[in-house]
Design a protein around this nucleic acid. Sequence first.
DNA 1: TATTGTTATACTCTATAACTATA
DNA 2: TATAGTTATAGAGTATAACAATA
Lengths: 147, 147
Amino acid sequence: MTGRDLSLRRFSGYAMKRAFNQVQADLNATLAPHGLRLVTFSALCLIDENKGLKQSELAQILGVERPNMVLIVDELDSADLIVRDRSTEDRRAYELRLTEQGEKVLAAASAAAQGHDARMTAGITDDVRETLVTALWRIEANGRQRD
Amino acid sequence: MTGRDLSLRRFSGYAMKRAFNQVQADLNATLAPHGLRLVTFSALCLIDENKGLKQSELAQILGVERPNMVLIVDELDSADLIVRDRSTEDRRAYELRLTEQGEKVLAAASAAAQGHDARMTAGITDDVRETLVTALWRIEANGRQRD
DNA sequence: TATTGTTATACTCTATAACTATA
DNA sequence: TATAGTTATAGAGTATAACAATA
């Protein structure tokens, strides 16, 4: 552990895996008291920002397969955080909306998630933190380009 | 997809998840022709840098549970990339070493992985790339501190 | 009694095929 | 015929308990 993996540490992919393992563990622990995990929290954010979002649109944005999205939306639905409204334009589709309870939970969970983010990026300047997030989205875009 | 998840994008954890999804897919595709995946490649690097590394030490460094490490080492062993030598000091333990074939495969896979890394970080300056990797390891250390 | 490697097992995540109802 | 949501299912990846050999 003490400088053992010197050359591996220079690989950005390995650094990302190890860092993300920690972030995921801490974030899920942070969200658990709110009955959420990373993917359900993300879904809640997106539905809040895009009223009437369809399940399949949500799946595409989150990069989740439709069959798996069903379970995620079920989870939020069962917890009364969102409702599935039948679309009047396309009666095959559901439009997703937050309930009042969903808005309350999202507000509380967002505050907790911001605390988590600050904790994980402790000792990193706002400047570097911004550079980090920008670089990560650039990497994500580079990857998506080759699909 | 077009600016839909504005506030979520500011969360470093979400950015890391999305970026790492792309990196993992590209890296595994890059390593597959060499018969490796991220975890077996990492193991191979570590064994190369630390001759005689024990299985349990490797598991601890990689953050993998011992029972799962068995399968990973089995995979490298079956492919004749490493050997398990019984330790003379502690006959419960194995000392892991690369075979000649393992050294060849590691050299080829390392070159491929460096190409992958360059591809994924295209458009990012060396300066920012270094900042990124340093910040990721800082985040990893912040997470480990609270275990 | 503790530790290394192992087996068996279970739980989560993810991915694919096929169905239904609508379009 | 194509699409939205669903079901069933199979494959990874990961985690825990318990065992044999050795310390």
